[in-house]
Amino acid sequence: MARVLVVDDEPNIVLSLEFLMEQAGFDVVTAEDGESALACVNDAIPDLILLDISLPGISGFDVLEQLRADSDKAHLPIIMLTAHGREVEREKGMALGADDYITKPFSTQALVSKVKALLAETDK
């Protein structure tokens, strides 16, 4: 069973994502900030990360950058979640190597199908 890491500092958003992923049949791990997210990646070894950008401490961009720099985890699929709707940020995220970029508020169905598609792609 694939494992998804949800990183966000808003408890209610984490709650909703956790529910959605579990419903879709994934194992879910959560983290509230960048540092614990990095720790989780090492401990729980997720298959995909839903990563919020504005986190306290290390930002989502930093987490993304560090993971992409690490050869072991460089191919880990990552979907960025953000409340910043600006085009610049989207481009920055994609440039840093995010697999997808989803703006809050998002469509739950679209999110779930994106996650599934990405996981299927990496399985091949």
Binding site: N12, S54, P105, T108
Partner: peptide
């Protein structure tokens, strides 16, 4: 930008849970 960010955060939860409840 700040305002939009702050407004989107509760809105995200609302929409997510509303869709969960609908589906």
């Amino acid at each position: 930008a700040m305002v939009s960010h702050e407004l989107r955060t509760p809105l995200t939860s609302i929409r997510a849970f509303a869709e969960i409840l609908r589906d």
